[in-house]
């Protein structure tokens, strides 16, 4: 069974989608990713869609689900590198991916996640971002 690799980078998880997702593969990704969030206690999930040429409502729903599920488990999701044509189509389709953060590329996505974590953890933890002292 084909699988989409999930990489752990510090307190973030990185998924790069490089093939057209057929339904089973997408659903597997959803559950794999959520399990990984639990196992690693990740604070953020980066989904790189820069080589995805089509996002239909099914795929959009999977992305939305991942975001909502990880939110419940205290991790933010950032979708990075969406192609212009894909963004235009999603808007026209009426699917603005509410609740999902977006960034231009992986690097900017990481910056965004770091700033979110800083915001949440607030004053008691200043310069120690990327530190994993979570108690769950």
């Amino acid at each position: 069974m084909e699988k989409i690799p999930i990489l752990k980078m510090g307190s973030f998880l990185l998924v790069t989608i490089q093939v057209d997702l057929y339904d089973q593969l997408a659903e597997n990704l959803e559950s794999d990713l959520i399990n990984m969030v639990k196992k690693t206690g990740a604070k953020g999930v980066l989904i790189d869609v820069s080589s995805v040429s089509i996002i239909d409502s099914f795929m959009g729903r999977i992305l939305g689900n991942i975001a909502t599920m990880s939110r419940i488990m205290d991790a933010s999701t950032v979708v990075v590198g969406m192609q212009p044509a894909v963004a235009i189509t999603l808007v026209e389709l009426g699917l603005p991916l509410k609740g999902v953060y977006t960034a231009l590329n992986v690097e900017k996505g990481m910056d965004l996640l770091r700033s979110k974590i800083l915001q949440e953890e607030g004053p008691q933890d200043d310069d120690d971002d990327g530190d994993e002292d979570h108690t769950e």
């Binding site: 040429s53 089509i54 996002i55 239909d56 409502s57 099914f58 192609q83 212009p84 044509a85 894909v86 235009i88 189509t89 026209e92 389709l93």
Partner: peptide, 17 residues
């Protein structure tokens, strides 16, 4: 054009599903 292609294929995907 690429944008129209993407719209067409996305629409096709919706309908076939």
């Amino acid at each position: 054009s690429l944008v129209n292609q993407t719209k067409l294929i996305t629409g096709a995907s919706e309908l076939v599903r």
